[in-house]
């Protein structure tokens, strides 16, 4: 079973990050939440692998990584 790739894997991380932030430009919180959800659903369907999705969910919900944003 393939695992989630946790090594850097993008040629232009700054560009991709900007695209992500631009998605939310001028949005209310509610609209932002919805856009994030749409993005996740699109990508999850593309990946098509629940094992990888769960590994990503584990990272997203990890106490160590989420402590930093509180």
């Amino acid at each position: 079973m393939a695992d989630l790739n946790t090594s850097p894997n993008l040629t232009d991380p700054d560009g991709l990050y900007r695209t992500l932030i631009d998605l939310h430009a001028g949005c209310t919180d509610a609209e932002s939440h919805k856009r994030s959800a749409k993005l996740i659903l699109c990508l999850a369907n593309h990946i098509g692998d629940e094992h990888i999705f769960r590994q990503a969910v584990a990272i997203a919900g990890d106490a160590q990584t989420s402590a930093k944003d509180t």
Partner: peptide, 24 residues
């Protein structure tokens, strides 16, 4: 919750135009 509603509405928004979202 707000986020759970956002996920739900995201699915419904997408489902109209995108087949992949319909099974959700």
């Amino acid at each position: 919750s707000t986020v759970s509603r956002a996920c739900r509405d995201a699915v419904l928004d997408l489902a109209e135009a995108h087949e992949f979202a319909r099974p959700f």
